[in-house]
Structures are given as C-alpha cells and as structure tokens.
Design a protein around this nucleic acid. Structure first.
Lengths: 347, 347
DNA sequence: TCAGAATTGAGGTACGTGCCTCATGACTTT
DNA sequence: AAAGTCATGAGGCACGTACCTCAATTCTGA
C-alpha cells in the first residue's frame, strides 16, 4: 500500500512522446525558434496543455550559459523612497546571484520621460531579459515599453502601473486604499472633528491622485466633522514642503490633522518640530525612511503608511524569473500590503 | 574594454583543485559522508572559505532523485489562525512542487505536547528533510526537537520560538511589539482616557503573555488616563469569549476599549453586535480571519493586528530550502511584519 | 519531375551537483 | 610479513533543459 506514488512532473521528453514529435521540435516550439509548421506547433502546444507540462526553471537556468539579467530603472533624487527601492535591489543582488539572476540598477532623472524611454530603447536583449520600471504615464514611455517587448525583453511596472502598454506584470499597492486608510485613521484619532490639511507632491502623479481620491471618499462618507484644507502641492521637495507646512500651521492655529501623501517628509518634520508643542496636529505620512522614522520617534508623526520596498523588490524578482523563463503566460505574485507604522511597531 | 567579466561562481571542481584533493573527497566533506581524515577535511573547508564557495541549491536539488520534503506540524481546532497557516501551506504546495519541494501538513491536538513530540519522534529522515512546528514551551518537545536534529532532520519553529533547543531557525513576529502597538493605537483613539479591557486566550501561552507585557508597558508609559480591566481569559473559545465580553459590557457600561489578544473572535463580535450602538468601545483584535473581517466591516472591531500567515509560510519554505541543503549555517529570512488592518485596507 | 527550400529527427555536449563503483595506496594489526 | 582496514582518487551516470550539428524527409514551385 504505497501511497506516495505522486507521479513525476512531465518533462520535455514526455511532451515529445505525447505529441509524436522529436525532442528537437519540442525545443523549437518551447523556445520560439523558427522552422516549425503551424500544424506541428499546434500538436506540441496541445500535448503541453494535456500533460500540464511546465518548464523546470532551475534546470532551464542551469542549461543556459548566461545568467538571467534584470535591469531596474529607478528615479533619482526626488524622494527617499526611491533610494529605498534601489537599496532593496542592492541587498538582493548577492543572494539573487546564487539563483543565477544578475540584478542591476539604473537611476534616471525623476519624471523625465525622455530619459527613461531612451534607456529602454537602448536595451540590448542579450544584456537584459527583464526590465523593471518605475514610471508615470506618458505616451513616449508606452511606446518604448512596447518596443522593448517586441525585442524580447519582458517589461514590468513597479509602484505605478502603465495600463494599456505591453507590460507583463505590475507590482505595487492599491493607492486608493492607502488614502482611505489614512482618512480612516485620522477620523478615529479626531473624534471631535476639525480641520485636516492634505499635502501632495504633485497633482500630476497618478499614485498621489489615487491617494487623494481614497482620502476624500472616506472623509466624506464617514467623518463629516472633518474639514479638508487643500490639497496643497509640495513637489516632493524638502524646502518647499517645510515652507508650506510652516505657513499652514500659522494660518490655521487650530489645525487638527495633516496628511502628507507625497514625499518631502524632512521638511514636514522640521516645520512641525519648529512649532514644538504649541500646535501638535495628528500627522500621517507615507513611506518609512530616515525622516519619517525620526518623526515617529519624536512624536511629530503619528502614523506612516509604507509600501514595503523590500517586499516589492522580492516579488519583482520572483516575477521577473517566472516571466523571463515562463512561456509568458499570466504570472501570480503575492500582493504587496500597505504597512501601517507607529513608533511602537517600527521595523 | 569588456567590463562584464564577472567571474563565474566557484564550483565543487574549483574547490577540489584549490584544496589539492579529488572531487570525491570534496563531495564527502560537503555531504558529511564518512571516510575523510580530519586534516584533509580541514584543507577542503579552508578552500571553501577561501573561494567563497557555496553549493548551487538548484543543481543540488536537481541531482538528488527525491524532492525536498518539508512537514508542517500545525495545531488543530483551537483557533482560526492555525487554519490560515494550514491553508497557506496548501496554497504554496503546487508552486513549491515545481521547485522540487514537497510540502505536507499534520494537524495535531492544540497544546498537546505529547502528540507533537510523538509526531516528531516518528519522523523518518528519508521522509522528511525539514520539520516546521508551532508549539508551546515544553521539555518533552525540546527533547523531541533535539532528537530529530540528531537524526538529520532540520527543525524550525513558527509563530512561537523554542529557545534552548536545537531548532535551526525561527519565523514569527515580535509579540511584545504587537502589544505595544495595540496600546499605542487605543491610546490615540481615546484621547479622553477611560477603561480598557484586555482578554487573553490563556495566560500560560508565551505569545499572549508577550502581547500583554507590551500592552501594559505602553499604557503605563504613554497613556496614564487609560485604566486596565483584566486581563481576563477566554481560552480562545467562541462561547466562553462571548459570555465574557457580554458580562464585561454589562458590568462596565462606560467601557472605552477592548483589546482581545487571543482568539475567540467570533464570540467577541457576537457579544458586541448584541448590544448594538448602545455601547461601542474601540476594539482591537488579532489575526485576520472570517470573524475579524466581519467585525471590521460591521464596525464592531476597529483594528486587527495580523501576523500574515502567508508571509510566514513563504519565509518558512525559503528557510527550509536553505536549511536542508545549505551546510547548516545561519539562515537569513525577511522579517515578518505586524500588519495593521482597518476596514479600509483589508487585503 | 527535379532542384531548392523548409521542416523534422537523431543525437551529442553542457550546466553543477549527488551518488555510485572500483581501484589504488597507506596505514594498522596480528 | 601477511592480512586487513582506512583514506583517497578516478570516473561515470543521472537530473531536465538549452543549444548545436548533421542528416533525412517532406513540401514547394517552375
């Protein structure tokens, strides 16, 4: 009574036998090589489906001479979160190497569509199996993504999606839900109601707009006692945000809460600490970084919503591996959760 | 000017050459086979360190005939969270198979040390490369862990650690921090102060005690206006917890908050919904599950702290792979974060 | 019908490791 | 010194896939 008779996974040999063709033909179909008649390819595809065959990624990678190459395009300069992403990639580089994956990072000018598009266009399929991009929605980039895809480079979006493009996968959080969460927390923090200011980086950024939408929705629905001030734009800049918050605090001495849904947190904290305990609104910001950590510890910031860059990079790598080797079908990854951090659960 | 001269990773062949021994000897050392003089083994070890060699897990797994077998021992019945863990294992089973890992689950009587110890003792090293256990601290289990380790089975603890044992790794959250977070949130929810009740499953469970400690610490330090009622014990039971909460609400009509740090959430929600809007304290519970989700949606529960069973299982599998194949050195895994969920960021 | 092109088959080597056998040499015991 | 034990080397096969070559077959068009 041997119940561990779990059958072997199907191999290319099994597929060849089942399709009634040779191993070489199966190989041609699997790797998109030319010289196979449509009818024959059909037989092979059918056998693949029938046997539930899926290529063994480990064996596949071992058989290829070169490593799997993944290039991350990450915006430069604008805010600390992007640095966290780059650092997360760097942290994974060594361990990934032992999985035969070679990660590299290119920092590009933030919000400079031309620079990212040029970077994508310059990619040689032999030097890059998969490109991971953090981008805003621009026709220029959409075209570059489609072109790269045609050249055989799998493109994946990170943090912010690019709907309508040929990108194979998206990794990121639900920013509308993030905005709703911020409103929900502020509402509970301020049972007596009051004025709540919202600061965005730019109202031209998709993720910032999403957060604003979610925030407004919950405020209107659940907390009519809270009144919105803004949204104001700090352009994700330290100095500009600091001036903005300072003015806010002097204009509204009775301000109950602040939601900074963009970057520029160093300025936010500086402005808050400048007024000391005289005015201390409940404050919610985005992304764990040095300034937001400091703000949490000093009490200037109450809650930080975080999209866990390490988790995003981990899932991006997993997806890249599956994408570059898999037949290009749909890829499933673990969802990225919105982390909520107070001073007491800082990681 | 070819700058991609990243040198190959060292292989067993390189190690053999560097140590001046044959491949067979390197293999004997690497896989702990007998028949190698101490002096010779030393030479090999030295070469391994010098070359920074680390075994290619994929090739290694491919070369072995059998899959890597991981057995999860998960308590049965007591609370919904354990079911989530089991489901997470089930969800990973298929994908893991394509990584040559065979996962299986054994449900054991909750808090029955004898049953878990017997299960561990019965493990045959040929049927199990790594055992993952969820357990309380008992001498009996400690002995069983050490025995299994001697037989060549790597043991890992999940959710709750077993210090002093031969377990190779622990996956779980910081429960003291979880308790601190609960207090910090309740404190912010209740700026006017008031009475806060704490319900535990049992004061004999290590993780529950840790949460209680963290909760008390922050309450005492930061929120002197909040007064603790309890802790009470609901034994992670639906009916018992429901009766407990009902009595609590009638005894303390002015109750401001409830922190349920154990299970039995179905009873908690039922008791809260029974009194309707007449009394509606701020409520924090643990672990996302059907009852806590329902509670969040209905407004009976404000916040749920969650330890992300899927993430824990993911990390456990990664660690098991490294443990069972690696030389048994220290394993690094991503930390498990404490998730904070409101109705607005339910995943 | 026959040249030329397109398609398919057969079989090899390689990737890095595990695991096996057999032979050789060195060292120990009686 | 003979017999035995232990340590080591040499080499091969296997895992599942990629990628290559060369021949054999089928198809196409004039």
């Amino acid at each position: 009574m041997n119940e561990e008779a779990t059958r072997r996974r199907a191999t290319v040999h099994d597929v060849a036998k089942a399709a009634g063709v040779s191993l070489a033909t199966v190989d041609r179909v699997l790797n998109g090589r030319s010289g196979v008649r449509a009818a024959t390819a059909e037989k092979v595809e059918e056998a693949i489906v029938r046997l539930g065959f899926s290529r063994d990624l480990n064996a596949s990678l071992m058989a290829r001479a070169r490593d799997l190459k993944v290039v991350f395009f990450i915006p430069d300069g604008s805010n600390e979160f992007m640095d966290s992403l780059a650092e997360a990639v760097a942290r994974r580089s060594m361990p990934a190497l032992s999985d035969r994956m070679h990660l590299s990072t290119r920092r590009i000018r933030a919000l400079d569509a031309g620079s990212l598009a040029a970077g994508l266009d310059a990619l040689d399929p032999r030097d890059c199996d998969c490109a991971v991009i953090v981008t805003s929605e621009e026709p220029e980039i959409l075209a570059a993504v489609d072109s790269a895809t045609r050249r055989g480079i799998a493109v994946m979006t990170l943090v912010s999606d690019l709907p309508g493009s040929a990108r194979k996968h998206f990794i990121g959080v639900d920013n509308v839900a993030a905005g709703r969460t911020a409103a929900s927390l502020l509402g509970r923090f301020l049972p007596q109601g009051g004025k709540v200011a919202v600061i965005a980086g730019s109202l031209h950024l998709r993720d910032h707009l999403d957060r604003l939408d979610g925030f407004r929705e919950v405020l209107a629905r659940d907390f009519p006692a809270l009144h919105l001030v803004g949204p104001l734009e700090g352009h994700d800049e330290r100095v500009e945000t600091q001036a903005l918050v300072a003015k806010l605090l002097s204009d509204y001495p009775d301000l109950s809460g602040i939601y900074n849904l963009g970057a520029g947190n160093m300025g936010l904290v500086a402005a808050l600490e400048a007024v000391g305990n005289k005015i201390s609104p409940r404050v919610i910001a985005h992304e764990l970084s040095a300034p937001t950590r400091a703000g949490l510890m000093s009490g200037a910031i109450d809650v930080v919503l975080d999209q866990n860059p390490d988790g995003e990079i981990r899932e991006a790598i997993t997806a890249a591996r599956a994408l570059a080797l898999g037949a290009g079908r749909h890829i499933a990854t673990d969802p990225i959760e919105i982390g909520i951090f107070l001073r007491d659960n800082l990681r």
